[in-house]
Nucleic acid binder design. Structure first.
Lengths: 205, 205
DNA sequence: AGGCGATCAATGATCGATCATAGATCAGTC
DNA sequence: GACTGATCTATGATCGATCATTGATCGCCT
């Protein structure tokens, strides 16, 4: 067991997953390229088992495709793949907003925090993270744990990164709508769900 | 390797998962009860690895909870857990319906098949399966593979089974609404999404 | 008695090795 | 040369064993 990259002892599978995600989003592994379990295992100085575990996570995130007995390969993301995310997100977040508007009861402090941070963000990555955090906050505020689980399993961050990598960054400028949404939450506007829906869909290509 | 239950050679993990799901839905393992990897492995005459794989699937279905280094236990499903499914399903299926109405373009044959089969169903389990199949058809018809993937990952069948086990069966009588929905699809009614949403929510406790 | 650290058993996490399958390669036949 | 089947290779799937963590138990000290 070497120490190629200082893998500290806390959940090998998780760490390997992150390595693989970084590798895919950074383009180290090209779309369509095969990811061989043992090769990764040797490279990271670990066994095959935690690599398999990580790969199943990537499969759940739909970052890779696996065929029985034939291993995994990086998905060749089509524009359609990227576009498919938005209706699903929009539907989920509309549901979340409709649930959250009752629970928040006009208390929008948590949302405003993210707006402030987003305004202060400098680089693209930071803008993305804070923008996503705002949406995550709505989902959290829904109080529906299943909804949160499903939303998270979409791997929004990763897909957004991939989307940015493909097309030029176009996610700025929409920040103003976050303020509109927050105001709708503050006055407990029952139309906030549709507002969120439209907002999410406006990101779609 | 014994042959306790004729585990044929095609995806041990999948088969083990089914054994565990059956065990949980049938009540063999009580809520809160611990599921010990090696115990299952010995019982089924397999190794620990495929059992772990199966357990991760159950975790994704939220049938079990796992703590790091402390194993898995059957979730103690609260009424709230069961109730949480419906808003999420409703949101997803509304999205699906809105997408599907364009793609189907009034062709509702596939939907009608399930209505016919549902009408012919005899026992409760069959009613449930055909009823679910109708909803699955809508999701399939959306053409959005991500949506399908997310919907399937909800494990509707399992949760419905659990719901039936807890409360008396109350899912009959709603079948008529399936006909209404199908008609809405046939005439490409843009309100079909809301109709499906309301229909799904009507199952909620 | 109560608190506290050492010890132990159970078991999840990980490992290294083996088994089995899918493709690729090669030999033989026509 | 083209087709068929045997063989070989790479690799996923599975196994049995070991490492490491957790919570429980026990004995000691105050």
């Amino acid at each position: 067991m070497n120490a190629s990259s200082a893998l500290v002892r806390t959940g090998l599978g998780d760490q390997i997953r992150q390595v693989l995600i970084d590798g895919i989003t950074s383009g180290r592994w090209a779309p369509g390229e095969r990811i061989v379990e043992r090769r990764i295992a040797v490279e990271l100085g670990v066994s095959q088992a935690p690599v398999r575990e990580a790969l199943r996570h990537l499969e759940a995130l739909r970052l890779i495709e696996t065929l029985p007995n034939r291993g995994a390969r990086v998905r060749d993301f089509t524009d359609e793949d990227l576009a498919e995310v938005f209706p699903v997100r929009a539907g989920l977040e509309e549901t979340a907003a409709d649930l959250a508007v009752h629970r928040l009861a006009g208390q929008v402090d948590a949302l405003e925090v993210h707006i402030t941070r987003l305004a202060a963000a400098t680089d693209t990555g930071e803008v993305m993270r804070h923008s996503i955090a705002f949406h995550r906050e709505i989902v959290e505020a829904s109080g529906n744990r299943l909804l949160r689980s499903v939303w998270q399993s979409l791997g929004i961050e990763v897909w957004t990164t991939l989307s940015l990598r493909r097309r030029g960054t176009e996610l700025c400028g929409k920040a103003a709508e976050h303020t509109d949404i927050t105001e709708a939450f503050r006055r407990q506007d029952p139309g906030v769900g549709r507002l969120v829906h439209a907002h999410v869909m406006s990101y779609a290509p």
